[in-house]
Design a protein around this nucleic acid. Sequence first.
DNA 1: GTCGGGATCCTCT
DNA 2: GAGGATCCCGACA
Length: 203
Amino acid sequence: MIGAPVDASAALDRHWFDRPAVELARELLGARLVHGSSDGVVGGRIVEVEAYRGPEDRAAHSSRGRTPRNAVMFGEPGHLYVYLIYGLHNCLNVVAGPGSKPEAVLIRAIELDEGIALARQRRGARALDYRLASGPGNVARALGVDRSLDGVDLLTGPVRVEARSGSMPRARRGPRIGVDYAGAWAARPLRFWITDDRHVSRR
DNA sequence: GTCGGGATCCTCT
DNA sequence: GAGGATCCCGACA
């Protein structure tokens, strides 16, 4: 990405998010995710994502219908869906579309390029640089995101997505992780990651 | 009210 | 590679 042109049209609008999760997932690779809080700003380049389809996808939270927990998924595209998993870890999702179709993209890994010192403070001194935001739970910890940010608008809120500058990076796809319970859906290649990027959670 | 499972991570062996 | 941590959420009675 060295020498990539700075794209003055990088500002996103609602329409950019208003598309199926698979399509949005690919577009998010190489885009930046940034969280500005009172502690400071932490952000970086998205290198690994998973697409969760509408109600038909047995691995998706929306497959059991709308509940208070997943209500954000059923809302407007371009919002942040945050949930707690295993009672320990927060996971960040970008709500996709089209329209109010409850699809979302899980952010699995980021290559941090801003606020690295703060991220390290949040993650602990022992974490390796390239693992600071590797894995869904680690992304949330490094960025300082928890469920209090569930439902925030990614266009106007403290958590923002900034469009990729330059061309789409080379990417690979494969089955999602940790969804063995989802039957045939577990085998579908709905996980996307940037080829040969060491920040990806599982290679 | 109770119970079981889960889109994970870290440590220890 | 295995296992424990830890608790919310949804299903069911």
